[in-house]
């Protein structure tokens, strides 16, 4: 028997969802006619929470607790860039579900469920929230449609046999839960710090496969749950004033009746 057959590998596949979003450093604005958001020519990146999800998956594989990491993205052809970055970070293969329309979380969850049926992962890792729509829904919906547990806002993840122990960042502090695998885990910022991609990795990643599927071929209902009427800029806060010292600061606060 070949040696690698003897090594115990916990999970076969980890599926990681990567959404292409406007980079977090860019300040976006609504289009003047309110029909959407100006994104043309803006820097695009992997959703930061998804990058953390991928980093975690890679660490699990590197510890020998899983054999492969597959990254999945739904979106336009340009998502190839983010999938390539994911492959350069170390993912083994990628799937692009090509869709020119942006999907809302229920539709994205239905598509991702289809990917689960194809890939049969033992664990799905994704971001707690996409920083464009800020919905914070897709992971929970996917877990529900799949009929499996969810562990959201993870800041620590430990696998042992058929169980994952997850520390979650909640409003009261840190909650620890245990979920049976397979499960969906969504990441919070402090789960890990993603690695930098090195040049040789980018070269190597060019040879890795990206499987492309057209969303129409999946036969999935992608009707949005709501109708978006308009995109507007938020009410700006009136610019305040600078004070020169603590006495002036206190005088101003007392005038507003905020401190004694």
């Amino acid at each position: 028997m070949a040696l690698h057959h003897m090594r115990e590998v916990g999970l076969k596949t980890i599926m990681v969802c990567l959404k292409r979003v406007v980079d977090y450093n860019v300040r976006v604005r609504p289009k003047t006619d309110g029909s959407g958001v100006q994104t043309e020519g803006l820097k695009m990146s992997i959703n930061p929470f998804d990058e953390i999800a991928l980093e975690e998956a890679l660490r699990i594989r590197e510890r020998g607790e899983a054999s492969e990491v597959v990254v999945v993205s739904i979106g336009p052809e340009d998502c190839q860039q983010q999938l390539r970055t994911g492959l350069a970070m170390g993912a083994d293969s990628a799937v692009l579900v090509r869709s020119d329309e942006a999907l809302d979380p229920p539709s994205a969850a239905r598509v991702l469920l289809n990917m689960i049926e194809r890939l049969e992962p033992g664990l799905v890792l994704m971001g707690k929230q996409a920083i464009d729509d800020d919905c914070n829904q897709t992971g929970q919906m996917l877990a529900t449609l799949w009929g499996r547990p969810q562990a959201t806002f993870a800041s620590k993840l430990e696998l042992s046999g058929e169980v994952a122990t997850v520390t979650r960042e909640v409003d009261a502090g840190l909650e620890v839960i245990e979920v049976d695998l397979p499960a969906v885990v969504t990441t919070d910022l402090r789960l890990n710090e993603p690695r930098y991609v090195k040049l040789p990795d980018i070269m190597k990643a060019k040879k890795k496969p990206i499987d492309t599927v057209a969303i129409e071929d999946l036969g999935i209902d992608t009707t949005p749950a709501f109708q978006v009427l308009a995109h507007t800029a938020p009410e700006p806060r009136a610019r305040g004033r600078m004070v020169r010292n603590v006495d002036e600061l206190l005088a101003e606060l007392r005038e507003r009746g905020l401190v004694n």
């Binding site: 829904q137 929970q140 529900t144 749950a225």
Partner: peptide
Amino acid sequence: TTFGKDLMPRVAALLGTGQVSD
């Protein structure tokens, strides 16, 4: 809150609807 964010999408999915967040 983290309570509602974690819970409500699961409720929405069981009810076969979407969720308006925030």
